[in-house]
């Protein structure tokens, strides 16, 4: 797709264009849903931690599962939100070269390089997590905690975080060439 882009985009058939746009919309909506789930998880962490503190201090009745579940919810919120972070261009990147060089073609080349490298790294991470997910699923491994949950639940969210972020980067590579010259390479939309 990248090679095609650099040599002039191959003419896409109308239906193909339509199909890509639909997939893109579904993907975006999924990432926004993830953001809402991440917000819910964070609110839940705050609520259960507060409730547990009050229950322990005022009622002398600690809620033992709260620390373990705060951890699970934290991991969940980090990775279920990650695709939205990527989509909204909220990752921090160095902008040293982009601020030194100003030639548009050079900036675009830098951007393409950054997006390609990011994509390759995220795909590799997705693959590494996927293998671990399969082995945890096969062995039935639980978390080493007082209130264990199957490890593959958490690894599935981690996998989703990497894989969906990778897809966002791929879409930036393929469909946002005009945006690929911004100082912060992953800025796709305005910061929220």
């Amino acid at each position: 797709m990248v090679a095609g882009r650099q040599g002039g985009p191959p003419p896409l058939l109308r239906e193909e264009k339509h199909m890509f746009r639909t997939i893109g919309r579904v993907h975006d909506r999924l990432s926004e849903t993830g953001l809402w789930l991440g917000m819910g998880a964070l609110a839940a962490i705050a609520a259960i931690s507060f409730a547990a503190t009050m229950s322990r201090y005022l009622l002398g009745a600690p809620i033992a599962w709260v620390p373990d579940w705060s951890g699970y919810l934290l991991a969940f919120s980090i990775f279920v939100t990650a695709p939205a972070v990527t989509r909204h261009g909220q990752h921090v990147a160095m902008d040293i070269l982009a601020s030194v060089f100003t030639a548009p073609w050079l900036l675009r080349l830098l951007s393409l390089g950054a997006l390609l490298a990011t994509f390759a790294i995220l795909v590799t991470m997705s693959w590494i997590v996927w293998r671990s997910l399969l082995s945890a699923l096969g062995a039935g491994t639980m978390t080493a905690a007082g209130y264990p949950v199957p490890r593959w639940w958490l690894l599935a969210v981690v996998f989703y975080g990497f894989a969906s972020s990778a897809l966002h980067v791929l879409r930036m590579l393929a469909f946002c060439p005009q945006k690929a010259g911004l100082p912060q390479p992953l800025v796709e939309t305005e910061r929220v």
């Binding site: 600690p62 033992a64 709260v66 007082g146 209130y147």
Partner: peptide, 22 residues
Amino acid sequence: QIRALPPQHPYITAIGGTPVVL
């Protein structure tokens, strides 16, 4: 209120204590 890992909570409750996770 005694801090203990959850698998060891029965030890604490056996002698009247309230186990806490920290």
